[in-house]
Computed example of a mutant assay.
Amino acid sequence: MKKKICFVIDTFDFFLTHRLDLCNELSKKYSVSVITDTTDSEISGQSLAPKINFIHLSKRSGVFSYIRYFFELKKIIYKLKPSVTFFISVEISFTGSLLKIFSRNYFSAYLCFTGMGHNNGNTIRSKFFFHLKEIIFRLATRINNVYFIFQNSSHKDFLEIKFSIPKNKSFLIKGNGIKNFKTKLDFFEKINFCYSGRIEKEKNIEELIHAFKKVQENNNFCSELHLYGDYTKNINTPINKNLFFELKSYNIFMHGKLDQDQLFKEMSMHSVFVMPSNLEGLSKATLEAGALGLSIIAKDAPGVREAVAHNKNGYIYKNSLPSIMEDMIRDKNKTFELRKFSLLHIRKNFSLEVIAGQYIKIIERAS
Rank of each mutant, 00 (worst) to 15 (best):
N152D: 04
N152C: 10
S153W: 03
S153E: 15
S154N: 10
S154F: 08
S154K: 07
H155E: 10
H155W: 03
H155R: 08
H155V: 12
K156M: 11
D157V: 06
D157Y: 05
D157L: 14
F158G: 04
F158S: 09
F158M: 11
L159H: 03
L159N: 03
E160V: 04
E160M: 13
E160Y: 00
E160A: 12
E160L: 04
E160P: 02
E160W: 01
E160G: 06
E160H: 04
I161L: 12
I161A: 07
I161E: 13
K162C: 03
K162N: 09
F163R: 00
F163P: 00
F163C: 00
F163A: 00
S164N: 11
I165C: 02
I165H: 01
I165K: 00
P166R: 05
P166M: 06
P166V: 12
K167C: 05
N168R: 09
N168C: 03
N168F: 01
K169G: 01
K169Q: 11
S170C: 08
F171I: 01
F171L: 04
F171M: 03
L172D: 01
L172H: 02
L172G: 02
L172R: 02
L172F: 02
I173C: 02
I173D: 01
I173T: 03
I173G: 01
K174G: 04
K174S: 13
K174P: 06
G175R: 02
G175S: 12
G175C: 12
G175E: 11
G175N: 11
N176S: 15
N176K: 10
N176E: 09
N176W: 07
G177F: 02
G177R: 02
G177N: 14
G177K: 08
I178P: 00
I178A: 08
I178W: 07
K179L: 11
N180R: 11
N180I: 15
N180L: 10
F181W: 07
K182S: 14
K182W: 04
K182T: 15
T183M: 12
T183L: 10
T183P: 04
K184P: 06
K184Y: 15
L185P: 05
L185Y: 07
L185H: 13
D186E: 15
D186M: 10
D186K: 10
D186R: 04
D186N: 12
D186C: 07
F188E: 13
F188S: 06
E189G: 15
E189W: 05
E189P: 05
I191M: 13
I191C: 09
I191F: 08
I191L: 04
N192G: 10
N192P: 09
N192F: 10
N192L: 06
N192S: 11
F193V: 06
F193M: 11
F193D: 12
C194G: 09
S196Q: 12
S196F: 00
R198Q: 15
R198D: 07
R198P: 06
R198A: 13
I199F: 09
I199L: 12
I199D: 01
E200R: 04
E200W: 05
K201D: 07
K201E: 10
E202W: 07
E202T: 08
